[in-house]
Amino acid sequence: AEIIDGPKVNWNFAVWGKRRAFTEGMEYAAEQVKERTGGKFTITMGYGSFSKPKETLDGVKLGATQGAMFCNFYHPGKNPAFMVFTLPFLPLGDPDVRIRVTRKLYEHPALVADMDRWNAMTYVSTILPQYEFFGRGKEPHKPEDFAGMRVRAGGGIGSAMEKLGATLSTVPATEVYTTLERGTVDAASFPYTYAHVAYKLHEIADWFTGNLSPGTSECPAVFNKDAYAALPQQYKDLLMGMRDEIYAVQKKAYADIDAKNLPMLREKLTEITYTEEQRADFQEKAGKVVWDEWVKDNPKLPGQELIDLILSEAKASM
């Protein structure tokens, strides 16, 4: 392909942790941008070296980094409208549905306003997978089975579990292995399957839920608006034209890791799967109730409108 010519620009992009499926999309973007501009436009990925995970938006606002990843549930107060993605039992299990829905939602004025405060604009979603449960002991086959269970779950999934009568236990992610092993918690939810394997939960769990799809989080990649505006048109076009490729890379990264993990998980542990009716039962008992509460608790947000938008957009893409 032809080399895109332009001025020399380097962007600092803040992520955290280690390079993993979660970061493959932006890694691809960084690599492609460099290649297609002949090294004129570069994006330096800083793994924890530019920002703390919970303060990447501050870094963008200050202009210290030109782009960053953030996760909505780290700081609900910084991004109230984005919290809609964290509601439980939304129909966002399929990655293609997810991509379509997030694209639509990113354009909604409430979400745009959230980002405006941080002088940021959304670029792509990291389409984080659904959080499934890994646990020991009694297997949860129906909503009632979660009653009395001690679970580690945050945000909307946590609220849903409370509705089902579970006790919530807040344990730092790094301590989940020990607490699950010693029986202080019975089950823990993490993005499926890569985070479970990253925290080695498969070594100590008896069972896992394969398709409960209780909910997820939204972790977008964003740019500093001024930095983006200052780019020459050809660089802007390059970035914006690459989004489908990034989503494809991101999907493949999760699929690859599932392909590697799932056979191992299925061999070692009991996979609990749910029928459509069972999932509807969960949704009935712990989904809509939590949505309604969220709408009520956030009167400043067009909460119901956002939920309806997700539902209609998801339905349209089926």
Binding site: K52, E55, D58, G59, L62, G63, A64
Partner: peptide, 18 residues
Amino acid sequence: LLGWGPGAGLAGTIPHSK
């Protein structure tokens, strides 16, 4: 490396955030 605003601003976040 980053200029006055971003540089000093970022430094100002670190005592608390760390």
